[in-house]
Design a protein around this nucleic acid. Structure first.
Lengths: 340, 340
DNA sequence: GTGAAAGCGCTAACAA
DNA sequence: TTGTTAGCGCTTTCAC
């Protein structure tokens, strides 16, 4: 497509010297006659010489490109993580290739193969909610491709992991609801093949137990992330004979929709039912009542994951590394039930 | 990094034939002895041969990769557009490389150079709000790199464009507000170097004129997209001696924050001030009052843009093409002032 | 139908 | 300090 670009060969011919001298002159760190280098640089500048990355890639068998697989770009959490990844990658002179699994194992697997075929130098993954196998990642490790999981990690795979303290923050969130006087706390947890979801559920259960509250199965909803059924399970919860007095939601958007459904059904938030979200989106502050949530720095997760990956790539040390990014409870009106 | 992969050379050696024959056997459409092909295919399969894309790229001087430059991935509109782009690209066997300009001209320019250096086969762009020059794109066209603008287009650049009917929908939205009895309609328009923003403003102005309503400068706010100043300009508007009775917002998130500020100041939406958003996010249905908005299919814009770009790449025909994706007014409670 | 050789643009080991 | 040569993995003429 692009019109023919100048190559070192052109420069060499013009100057009556050899390609290798040009190559050397262009690469700062080899000794070339000062004058020769000056002339090469001058003419390269004049012709607007751009090294052909494709040739370099082939020669060096690397692309200075990171592959990223996330469930969805429309999920703001991942959109923010991408920001963090790109920042670090670009600073280090790397490009980023993003794929979406659409929460599907098959697509995730296909993305992986695509990235591998593109010969990316390393891969960052946040697994799909459907993924309950590790075979595709095992294959990657076998090929010694640097791999880092972030947020949605797979604990059984011997790769680096950047994650948040789901258990602890879920415990804390649940205790906060209890401290507000709530006794019938429901949770909308994610699919149980996800490490994060399991830990959140465990944090919730342990907090209830600590305070001698019963753990009831019908207060536990296993939702998938794609939405669509929020109204359904919210209705289910509020029509329970023992209606919950608090719901710990899977994310802020679901929480906001739940508040809507609850209010539509003549109940009040937080007085009848307190709501706690997850992710602390900007919009939490603008809905009514303002939504309590869990702040969870997606951007920092992205930067941490990219840093670890780049380090693996540049040092060749594939030793797994774990890094935890703390979450933080942000209390607003939606869980402010009564002064205790 | 990755352990050495099998090459056609390996297969050739194993079979005692030449590289070229293996290459031919692998590429469906050249005549090789049936038996030879069978044996090549068999062993390729067994060794899990994967052609080295890097070599192909160099040989063919193309990468089967599309470059995309958008302002921000956290902007859901662009996140959705990416989805559309990736769908079409992947179907056609292309990868996608995404860059963010962060609404900065300098970053946009840098992204462009990066993509060019990566030798992408074509580029899709939604320009930054800061971009008021076209030099970087002119340079691209000069190099015959296929280029398609989508949503945030630059009318002066001779490239293909996928856009929406900003003028018409803004006219329609403003008329809708007028039909609700609003007479003092304010608008939060984007930066005026953006074609979209200018058209939206023109649609608004023309609708006012058509209905003999005065166009007042202090009802026109020029906001940038990054948010942060919503509270400020909302306060400014509601403290005007002649307080507006409707505001046409730049997007739904700004609209929701505006509603929040308005209510916090003891005014009612829509009774005191009607609010019309832009983008028709899912959340519009769940805020109170439900937010009227403009539906605007980001995904379709993405697919259209990718289709046009791929067509350019594959046919080599760089003739500019324009495609319009219609928007649609979605009326909800936030603009339902009084029965007329 | 198949092989030998050249070449995509670059780097690097080896010579001079 | 510079040139020659080979090679990254593949395709594609040109012979045979």
């Amino acid at each position: 497509m692009a019109t023919e670009s100048v190559t070192i060969k052109d420069i060499a011919k013009l100057l009556g010297i050899s390609k290798s001298t040009v190559s050397r002159a262009l690469s700062e760190h080899s000794d070339v006659n000062q004058e020769t280098r000056r002339r090469v640089l001058e003419i390269a500048q004049k012709l607007n010489y751009q090294p052909n990355v494709l040739a370099l890639n082939l020669k060096q068998q690397r692309t200075h490109t990171l592959g990223v697989i996330i469930p969805e770009t429309v999920n703001r959490f991942f959109a923010k993580a991408i920001g963090g990844i790109q920042k670090i990658a670009n600073l280090a002179g790397y490009h980023v290739m993003i794929c979406q699994s659409d929460e599907s194992y098959v697509a995730e697997r296909k993305n992986l193969q695509g990235l591998l075929a593109s010969r990316v130098d390393g891969i960052l993954v946040s697994v799909s909610s459907e993924t309950d196998r590790t075979d595709h990642f095992d294959m990657l490790l076998q090929k010694n491709v640097p791999l880092v999981f972030f947020d949605r990690i797979l604990e059984d795979v011997k790769a680096s992991q950047v994650y948040t303290d789901n258990y602890e923050i879920s415990f804390e969130g649940t205790e906060h609801l209890i401290s507000q006087g709530c006794k019938r706390i429901a949770i909308v947890a994610g699919p149980q093949n996800l490490y994060n979801s399991r830990n959140r559920l465990m944090g919730y259960i342990d907090a209830l137990k600590k305070h001698n509250l019963p753990v009831k199965d019908n207060y536990i909803i296993h939702s998938y992330f794609r939405g669509g059924n929020v109204e359904e399970y919210t209705r289910h919860l509020i029509n329970l004979p023992q209606r919950p007095d608090a719901i710990f939601a899977i994310n802020d958007y679901a929480a906001i929709e739940m508040m809507h459904v609850i209010k539509k059904n003549g109940l009040r938030v937080p007085d009848d039912i307190a709501i706690l979200g997850f992710n602390n989106e900007a919009i939490c502050r603008f809905v009514e009542p303002a939504l309590s949530s869990i702040d969870h720095s997606a951007f920092d997760m992205g930067t941490a994951a990219a840093e670890i990956l780049l380090n693996k790539i540049e040092t060749g040390n594939l030793e797994p590394e774990r890094r935890m990014i703390k979450s933080r409870l942000v209390i607003r009106e939606s869980t402010h039930v009564r002064s205790v």
